[in-house]
Nucleic acid binder design. Structure first.
Lengths: 212, 212
DNA sequence: AAATGTGAAGAGGTTCACAGCG
DNA sequence: CGCTGTGAACCTCTTCACATTT
């Protein structure tokens, strides 16, 4: 399955769960598009057909098998063990948020550099020294790493996670990680997103001025 | 300036600040590409030229004016007033993070629905009832809204922010916001990002199995 | 008649190749 | 000669149009 489709598949899954909860058992691409809100029915058909889904012409798609199929592709069935590197506000909030939101995500190890934080516990999990990262990540059998450290420390954190066998990283630091290992990386740059918004606002403002 | 370039411009700005701090006064597109890490020098030249930057052939770009120009385009010079809707872990962490990270962002109003949270203070700012949103957002003159509420409440929060004159929204809820007003929206879907990672992991796993 | 599945056209953005300038 | 600036080729994903199936 192609990269940019994945977020859409995830959106379909969410929408289909809603439809399921509402007691529906079948849905058309058009109906799903309306539910999702920002994706065309054509796009949905292309995605589902690429996925090998079985739609019935004249009827639509059976929801239950579709949900299962999407769940499988998206890895929603497995449980995943997460290592958090950097336990400041961001790391802490992420841990709380993701475990509350989806039971399939478990925080399995937490690391920080600051002696003030090391040794504290969160939900019973001790915050360890990043110096012990490789061993502890291996021991805790983490699949996914979350980097919530300052930009300067992000690259080395990523390398150590990769060295410990982690093959997927969610990176909150505003840095392009470069890794030799084949690691899936998703970047979330909060300050960057805010800047995109402010650039739109200033652009809108100056075009208003230009018109005046 | 075209949409998808903005995150890149932001990356350039960050890299140029580093170069500036390192005492450099001029840089080539090639050099900047190396610093940024994941963008080609051609792309950089295209972006900077579209921006109207003055490079000197044979020399490169003067850093100082370039940084100023980028700062202007990205709206880094103004201060911005933020309204946070939903003051759970996520809203709380975002407030702490963004104010610590960039002084130009000020939290100007905070809202929640829960009586347990309403009336609390954060850095002197009272958490108000969402019922008062429109009036309070206007009064506090907020430019940017941050939605950190459950998915079901996101759409109405967005509508009320838009009605109060907010023209830029950072949305943490996994919902496509639909607004009549011309509002810039950036979505950050943490659980979605995690699912993208898990889908890659399961795909990698099944291709390994297929090979075996 | 209704809705899927899909080849072809289109759009948007990136890379190439090189002309142009300092 | 070095590096910018840019038209053209390219590529990737999305939309269109319609043949196809129930």
């Amino acid at each position: 399955m192609i990269d940019p489709a994945i977020p859409r598949l995830y959106a379909y899954h969410r929408a289909l769960r809603e439809a399921q909860a509402a007691g529906k058992s079948t849905i058309t691409s058009e109906g799903l598009a309306a539910l999702v809100g920002s994706i065309s029915s054509t796009q949905i058909r292309k995605d589902l057909s690429a996925l090998g889904a079985q739609g019935r012409r004249g009827r639509g798609y059976a929801i239950n098998p579709l949900v299962e199929q999407l769940a499988w592709v998206l890895g929603l069935e497995h449980d995943w063990r997460i290592a958090i590197v950097g336990f400041g506000y961001l790391g802490h909030a992420f841990a709380t948020f993701i475990t509350a939101r989806e039971a399939r995500f478990r925080i399995a190890a937490i690391f920080d550099r600051s002696p003030a934080v090391i040794g504290q516990r969160w939900e019973g999990i001790p915050v360890r020294d990043v110096a012990d990262l490789e061993a502890a990540v291996r021991e805790a059998d983490c699949n996914i790493g979350v980097i919530a450290v300052p930009a300067a420390a992000a690259q080395s954190s990523a390398q150590r996670l990769a060295a410990a066998g982690v093959r997927a990283i969610l990176n909150f630091a505003p840095t392009a990680l470069r890794l030799r290992e084949p690691v899936a990386v998703r970047n979330i740059d909060l300050a960057g997103e805010m800047s995109i918004l402010t650039s739109w606002l200033t652009a809108a403002e100056s075009s208003r001025e230009a018109r005046a």
